[in-house]
Write a protein that binds this DNA or RNA. Structure first.
Lengths: 246, 246
DNA sequence: ACCTGAACACCGTTCAAGT
DNA sequence: ACCTGAACACCGTTCAAGT
């Protein structure tokens, strides 16, 4: 497309501007394009959070008029869909080590990791989901592994949704904060302690600070393994267990 | 508070306005109050969806100036927190039939039911969650049952989050819709069929329409039972199973 | 085809003023 | 203490106009 580069290379070989391609205009940003918009939007959300994603803010980030975006993107909703699918492209869908169960675990973990890497965007994952090509690939892989494990199509679909729901839901869950408790609620992070006296909530008081954050390391894996163990048990009791390499 | 009623009752006994309390002013709405605002907001969201919840719209619904709301509610965020806690008040936390596992299942189901009853509001359940008194009661009950089952405090906390995350996540998940596939995407509901040819997604093609909606009846229970079975297995293998009535 | 500026129909919330 | 109207600083998006 840009054939000035080869032409200018021949013309400038006597000068010593090593490493600088004079055909490139380093002052002007590259032209607007769908992928560039989506990438810029994603890094904006990663840095400043989902509420900061504004067509106007994104436009100034790209040094362009707000309305220029609408030449490449139908509306904000589509933009968010594209961002989600871009993130889903980071999921590793091609690992083939181990049997179907360990592959399924690896897939869910990779999915989880992609979401945590863009934790702010994960909040957009609500209501109506519009699957893109990358998302479809993840689904294909998950369903494929479940069928390989021996599940019938309807049950594979149920199992998929359980895993999917848990993984996405985990990311959306934030921290538990009291609602206008006794002390200041400015601090924000200020712990699990509640609005009721300890006598009325003995169990919560016993468990105490373990309740504090959702995103304790290993917490995702705990629930994931619960689900996978449940799946394995289902297969075993229905006697349809696939011949797993023992 | 309104002691006009008893006074006027004595005054009007000769007239025949049966069933009509003349002390009541049926034309003017009852005075603004925190609970009334929250209830009105909830029914607005139930009817028209979360995006329709606007301080201005809520105010006109209550026949009041938008700014009147701010005398009872700090801001929109607090209003949503209050709405969520109101809904959590519908969860049955006092059923005592069966052992801890069946009680835990019943609790999760009741939680799920409360959320589905206000499906539109469930979308607000993201990011930072501010637990209110009703929410805290649900947590207390869940943790209590897990401790009763024999889990250690840290593990009870992990287990709780797995159940909590799954239940909330399930509600937020919408339908799978293709992202700007081949045909019209106006139809909306238009099925699972994807942007890739069937050869590239054999598993999805096999499972087919089973993938279509998340909220198929029984789908929530499937994942819930997976988690509960996993919990039971964990207890059994660590040999700490509580003496459940066999 | 792509970009722009002005404008429209909204938001949540602050503020000064009323009672 | 509670409510009001006007105003501020925003939104997403339409439209007519530019190149």
């Amino acid at each position: 497309m840009n054939d000035q580069s080869s032409a200018s290379r021949g013309r400038c070989d006597s000068t010593a501007w090593v490493g600088v391609d004079p055909s490139q205009d380093y002052t002007r940003p590259p032209p607007l394009s769908r992928p560039r918009i989506v990438r810029a939007a994603l890094s904006l959300v990663d840095e400043k959070g989902l509420p900061a994603l504004t067509m106007r803010a994104l436009a100034t980030e790209l040094e362009v008029s707000p309305m220029a975006l609408y030449n490449h993107v139908r509306d904000k909703e589509e933009l968010v869909d594209l961002m989600l699918d871009l993130v889903l492209g980071e999921v590793d869908t091609s690992a083939t080590e181990g049997d179907w169960l360990t592959q399924l675990r690896a897939l869910a973990r990779s999915y989880h990791q992609a979401l945590t890497a863009h934790h702010e965007l994960a909040q957009a994952y609500r209501g109506r989901v519009r699957i893109g090509p990358h998302g479809l690939l993840v689904i294909e892989r998950a369903i494929g592994l479940l069928l390989e494990g021996g599940f019938s199509p309807p049950e594979a679909s149920d199992a998929f949704f359980a895993l999917f729901t848990y993984t996405v839901g985990f990311e959306q869950m934030g921290y538990i904060v009291r609602l206008r408790g006794g002390a200041t609620h400015e601090g924000g992070e200020a712990g699990y302690y509640p609005l009721l006296p300890p006598e009325q909530i003995p169990a919560v008081t016993t468990v105490g600070p373990h309740l504090d954050g959702v995103h304790r390391p290993g917490r995702f894996d705990y629930g994931l393994d619960l689900l996978l163990a449940g799946l394995q048990a289902k297969l075993a009791q229905s006697g349809k267990a696939a011949a797993a390499p023992s």
